[in-house]
Write a protein that binds this DNA or RNA. Structure first.
Lengths: 158, 158
DNA sequence: GCGGCAATACTCGGATAACAACTGTCCGAGTAAGTAAGG
DNA sequence: CCTTACTTACTCGGACAGTTGTTATCCGAGTATTGCCGC
């Protein structure tokens, strides 16, 4: 079990876009160069974020991506779900109902305890990520670093 | 992001072995037929569980697999770790230190907030699974089903 | 000088290969049981 | 009848292909800018 690296990319890009002054759009090329990422592949993840309503794509010169909602209304879970998909990592195959010792369906009205535990674990993980917004992540960036980013984003074209 | 189906198989087999009377060993063939699973592939996961010290392999006729520790001392997390490996699902690539706007290492003494949140989420998930033992899972099986399993395991050869 | 128009360059979007991991399978090494012979 | 050695059959263990998902990339469709021409 491993997260796609696109999760990290999408998260960093979303946090960076939250720091763009006045919702200024950043092109995927600018984002890729900012973090030294392959632009063509990053495009796929940015597209997923746009499809999920996290980012908004602006075409044409001067366009790019910008946050579709205020950073305080975007959670870390939203970004992960957008990149990784909302499918549950664990799906009970109901193997207790198969094989030579299959349990009859009328005795399987309750979901098996294993599936319950897995679901609880996933829920705990989701709640943790749901409790952190993109705005929170911006605030946790060290002040000097945040200042450098601000200079980078708004500096070249004042 | 998706769990290997071996997680479900390993969990069910471990719970089943916990119900074997007197630590009686069950062959992988018996386990596979019990749940209708492909024996050859199940073997790979059982081997992983044995390598992790969850199960104990007994060779020869009448052999098979048995719990290496009491069910009350085995947690759901132990089984998942054995099958999926203990590698973290999210590894920070430190992309903030790369690209045109790379942050110098001396300002990266603290791990980036994104990695922290991911680690917290993973920790919450692990703690949830760590809080449930195999013995707990056995107790959560409906009584009539548990009785049928007991009959199956100890019945044919009283 | 001003408005309209066309050319332009920049942006995203979807379709297309390469790689890796998970899934699935096989046959060989080792061992405990069962058996038969001998004492 | 008991002991002992052998045969046997059953067990796990590691090495070997197939398929799905992730990684990586490219070229085409669409749009705001920009320069130019006409009025």
């Amino acid at each position: 079990m491993r997260f796609s690296e696109g999760v990290e990319w999408g998260m960093h890009c979303t946090v960076l876009l939250a720091q763009a002054a006045g919702g200024k759009a950043l092109s995927r090329r600018a984002l890729a160069e900012h973090y030294g990422l392959p632009e063509a592949y990053l495009a796929k993840h940015l597209r997923a974020l746009a499809a999920a309503g996290i980012l908004r794509a602006v075409p044409g010169p001067g366009g790019g991506y910008q946050l579709a909602r205020p950073a305080a209304q975007l959670t870390a879970l939203d970004v992960v779900d957008a990149v990784e998909g909302t499918a549950s990592p664990f799906t009970c195959q109901e193997i207790r109902q198969q094989g030579t010792s299959a349990v009859p369906p009328e005795q399987c009205r309750r979901p098996c305890a294993i599936a319950v535990v897995m679901a609880q674990g996933q829920q705990a993980w989701r709640e943790t990520l749901r409790g952190v917004t993109i705005a929170d992540l911006v605030e946790r960036i060290p002040a000097p670093v945040r200042e450098q980013i601000r200079a980078k984003l708004g500096g070249p074209r004042p």
